[in-house]
C-alpha cells in the first residue's frame, strides 16, 4: 500500500515561501513524476513527503493516516538520493543490509533479500566491493537495492539519473520503469528532464515556483496543456508560441503549434519564411525557420532526409485541429 495525500501543504524557509498551500493525491501503485525548472521546489516537496523537512502547515497522509509529525523512519518510505548517499566505508552488501539491520531482521532474511536484490539489479559480482570501486551506474543500482530491500510503501527518487551519461541514463530509465511494473509499488520521481517525465510517468505533476501548474497523464499534458507554461515545458522540441496578429486571427492572445504539427513545403503554404539553422538527428531534422512578420523563429520537425539548406525559402502550414489557443493570462481556450 502506498497512497500519499497532501492537503494544503505549505513550506516556508524563514520569510521565503517555497511552496504555497498545495493539494496532491498520489494513488497506490502509481508512478508519479514531479517535473519543473530548477529551483521550483521539486526536491523540497519530495523531502516534505519523506519527512526530512517539516511542513510549515498542512497535512500529509500516508495510506489514510496522518503522517505529518512522523519521523522519516516511521513513514515506511525509501529514498534514492541524487548523490546516491551510499555509506563509503561499508561494502555493497553491508550498504544494502543497513536498513534491514536497523529494522532488526534476522540474518537469514537479510541474506535472502540481498541475494534477490543483487540478482535483480545485476550486482551479484560486486557485493563485496566498496562504493568507491563502482561506476556511477553501479552505485545507482546499489542505492536502489538499498531502497528495495526495505519493501517500502513507496519509493522516492530525487533526480537519480542526473549524474549519469546519456546512454546509461536511457538504460537506467528502462530499469526503473521495469522495476515499477514488477513491484507495482508507488514511486515518486523528481526530475527536470521532461523526456524522463514523459517516458516513465503514469502521472506527471508540473511545478513552477512551488505551484502545481497541471497534473495529468503524459499524453493529456501533451495534447491539452492547461496553460502556456505547461505547453512550453512538455514536448521536445518546445511548442512554438506565436503572439500578435496571427494569434488574433484565431481569437486568442497566443497560439501554440508543436514542431511536429507543421507541414513543410517549398511551393505552397500559409506561412512563408527562410530556413535558418538545421539540426540533423538522422531520423528527424529540425529546421529553425524565420517567418516573415513573426517575432520569433519557429521550430519545425521533418523526416530525416529533407533536402533544404540555410537561406532556402520554405513554406509552413499548421494543422488547424492541433493549434492550441491561450488567453492573455496564458490559460487554455477550448
Amino acid at each position: 500500500m502506498g497512497r500519499i495525500q497532501l492537503k494544503q501543504v505549505k513550506k516556508a524557509f524563514g520569510d521565503v515561501t517555497v511552496i504555497p498551500p498545495l493539494d496532491l493525491e498520489i494513488e497506490d501503485g502509481e508512478f508519479v513524476v514531479f517535473v519543473g525548472p530548477s529551483g521550483c521546489g521539486k526536491s523540497t516537496l519530495l523531502r516534505l513527503i519523506a519527512g526530512l523537512e517539516d511542513t510549515t502547515s498542512g497535512i500529509i497522509e500516508i495510506d489514510g493516516k496522518d503522517a505529518t509529525g512522523l519521523p522519516p523512519a516511521k513513514r515506511g518510505l525509501a529514498m534514492v538520493f541524487q548523490s546516491y548517499a551510499l555509506y563509503p566505508h561499508m561494502s555493497v552488501r553491508k550498504n544494502i543490509a543497513f536498513p534491514m539491520k536497523m529494522a532488526g531482521l534476522s540474518p537469514e532474511e537479510q541474506n535472502r533479500r540481498i541475494e534477490a536484490a543483487a540478482k535483480a539489479l545485476n550486482l551479484t559480482d560486486y557485493l563485496d566491493r566498496r562504493p568507491g570501486q563502482l561506476s556511477g551506474g553501479q552505485r545507482q543500482r546499489v542505492a536502489i537495492g538499498r531502497a528495495i530491500v526495505r519493501e517500502p510503501a513507496a519509493f522516492l527518487f530525487d533526480e537519480p539519473l542526473s549524474n549519469l551519461d546519456a546512454a546509461l541514463r536511457v538504460g537506467m530509465r528502462l530499469e526503473i520503469s521495469e522495476l515499477h511494473k514488477r513491484l507495482a509499488t508507488t514511486m515518486v520521481y523528481v526530475t527536470h528532464d521532461q523526456v524522463e517525465a514523459m517516458t516513465m510517468a503514469d502521472k506527471i505533476v508540473v511545478l513552477q515556483a512551488g505551484v502545481i501548474e497541471q497534473v495529468g497523464s503524459p499524453l493529456e499534458l501533451y495534447h491539452s496543456p492547461r496553460n502556456r507554461f505547461v505547453a512550453g515545458f512538455i514536448g521536445s522540441p518546445k511548442m512554438n508560441l506565436i503572439e500578435g496578429p496571427e494569434a488574433a486571427k484565431h481569437n486568442a492572445h497566443t497560439i501554440g503549434i508543436r514542431p511536429e504539427h507543421l507541414t513543410v513545403s517549398t511551393d505552397s503554404g500559409d506561412w512563408h519564411g527562410t530556413v535558418g539553422v538545421s539540426e540533423h538527428l538522422g531520423s528527424d531534422t529540425f529546421f529553425h525557420v524565420k517567418i516573415d512578420g513573426f517575432a520569433e523563429p519557429l521550430t519545425v520537425r521533418v523526416g530525416g532526409d529533407f533536402d533544404l539548406h540555410y537561406g532556402d525559402a520554405i513554406q509552413l502550414t499548421p494543422d488547424p485541429a492541433l493549434i492550441h489557443k491561450f488567453d492573455a493570462k496564458g490559460l487554455r481556450i477550448t
Partner: peptide, 18 residues
C-alpha cells in the same frame, strides 16, 4: 560529512546514536 548520507541513514531507520 555529506549530509545526504546522514539523511539516508535516518530514512533507513537509524536513530541518532546509531
Amino acid at each position: 560529512l555529506d549530509s545526504e548520507q546522514l539523511e539516508a541513514a535516518e530514512m533507513d531507520g537509524a536513530p541518532y546514536i546509531k
